[in-house]
Amino acid sequence: MDNLHRRPFTGTVEAPGFAVRVLDLPAQFYVPCDQPPGSIAGADTYTLWLAPDLALQVGGAPPEGFVSDMADGLVVFELSGPRAADVLAMGSTVALTPGQCVRTLFGGVRVIMYLHGAAMRLHAERQFAAFLLQWFQTAASALPQGQVP
């Protein structure tokens, strides 16, 4: 019998001034945390503060110690475009600032959110990925169809 094959969650949303890509990030680990609440540490490989004593490392190799591999557990949505902020405002009160991450509810789903370059990233547990993708598709239809700001 053939070996198992991996099927990452996929999907995209395209709307005037707004796009969502689902990223398959192969390195995501729950790791011990020694950084300030709400902070992002690092650059190419970075850690996001999640809770007391808990962070999410994105990229790189797993560190020593109490580590759980979450690559298959967390789906990453990358939101971009000038109207991404409008969509963000439909799902959360959070005002994102560079260098900070937020663990909050977005559209009723617990996510980890932060700015990543010119885009926004949301990490959500895999079981919610289909719901969130549909949520983004629906929200995109509420955006005005006129000229993109």
Partner: peptide
């Protein structure tokens, strides 16, 4: 002690 909910990963 550290607690990790890995339900989604498996």
């Amino acid at each position: 002690v550290a607690l990790h909910d890995t339900t989604a990963a498996w």
